[in-house]
């Protein structure tokens, strides 16, 4: 497939996926608004943000403030490139795809930190610091559980990892993998119980001063990031495009939707954790569990 084809495919995927994710999240809020209101919610919200008068702060780091949302979306797109949607060689199946995904997901820290820094305002800055503390404590477990799926596949290419699951999906072979992945992925996308950088106790945190197209891009980029994380989760743990009867791409879509709904509902149901406790949780609980996951998978693979 040509580079242009991959670009179009990834963009379409992220836009549609982000729309579905926002609608799913809206449906989790409650049923009194109704399905129809949820379906038009993304459009209404987007048009509201685009027409809203844009506020600014005193002496912001203007370039950085514009850069951060675009960077976040770019990272979501880069992370989605190595994930095959259908049979092998469709999509950009690159040899070290898993590392590309990991690098893109860790640079999310940079985008969020810049977004918190740029308005030159206290609450967004605190949100940025919170996110740095969170990502530094879950980044290692995240990378470990993702890279562990490469052990049985004996390859860092995502397509090969999907192929290696033709007998047994890694969600069963590596039972610790998917739970840790979902928790850390939600933290990296500052979503759900881990939305502390944007917490209401900080009046919106990193997004407190953002408005207008900037905020619209930021929200869209975050939804796209969730789609990328769900895509990778289903590819490395749920067997990607593998499945009976239905065509491969449909299986990818179904599994991605399942993960998106799980993440959306977790975000609306689970209780928040203070950031100090979350850092403790990351280093003391998640990191040893991820190491156990690596050890067990290596043992099974041998």
């Amino acid at each position: 497939m040509t580079a242009l084809g991959i670009l179009v495919q990834v963009m379409a995927l992220l836009v549609v996926g982000a729309y579905i994710f926002v609608v799913a999240d809206r449906l989790m809020v409650g049923t009194e608004t109704g399905v129809r209101a949820a379906l038009v919610y993304p459009v209404r919200r987007l048009s509201f943000l685009l027409l809203q008068p844009v506020t600014t702060t005193e002496r912001p780091d203007f370039e950085a403030w514009i850069l951060a949302p675009s960077l976040l979306f770019g990272l979501a797109a880069v992370g989605a490139v190595p994930i095959p949607l259908d049979a092998p060689s469709a999509g950009g199946d690159i040899p070290a795809g898993l590392v590309l995904f990991g690098a893109a997901m860790l640079i999310v820290l940079v985008a969020v930190y810049i977004f918190g820094w740029a308005p030159n305002s206290a609450l967004p800055m605190i949100g940025g610091y919170r996110f740095a503390a969170m990502v530094l404590s879950v980044g290692i477990p995240f990378s470990l559980v993702v890279l562990t799926t490469a052990i049985p596949a004996e390859s860092l290419s995502v397509g090969m990892i999907v192929e290696a699951q033709s007998n047994l999906w890694f969600v069963i072979e590596q039972p610790l993998g998917l739970p840790i992945y979902l928790v850390t992925a939600a933290a990296i996308a500052f979503w759900g119980p881990f939305d502390l950088p944007e917490g209401s106790d900080l009046a919106g945190g990193i997004a407190a001063e953002a408005s207008g197209p900037r905020l619209a891009t930021w929200r869209f980029a975050r939804a796209a990031l969730m789609v990328t994380l769900a895509l990778m989760g289903q590819a490395v743990f749920l067997g990607g495009y593998l499945g009976p009867v239905l065509p491969g791409w449909l299986w990818t879509v179904i599994k991605t939707l399942i993960l998106l709904v799980i993440l959306a509902s977790a975000g609306r149901t689970l209780a928040r954790m203070r950031v100090q406790r979350f850092v403790w949780f990351g280093w003391v609980i998640l990191l040893p569990l991820a190491l156990v996951d690596v050890f067990l998978s290596g043992w099974i693979a041998l």
């Binding site: 070290a96 590392v99 690098a103 860790l106 640079i107 820290l109 930190y113 740095a132 980044g139």
Partner: peptide, 17 residues
């Protein structure tokens, strides 16, 4: 490829610190 991506992966965390 691997070394280049690992370099980027490492530096994103380090530069934020």
């Amino acid at each position: 490829q691997f070394l280049g991506l690992i370099l980027i992966l490492m530096m994103s965390g380090e530069m934020t610190i």
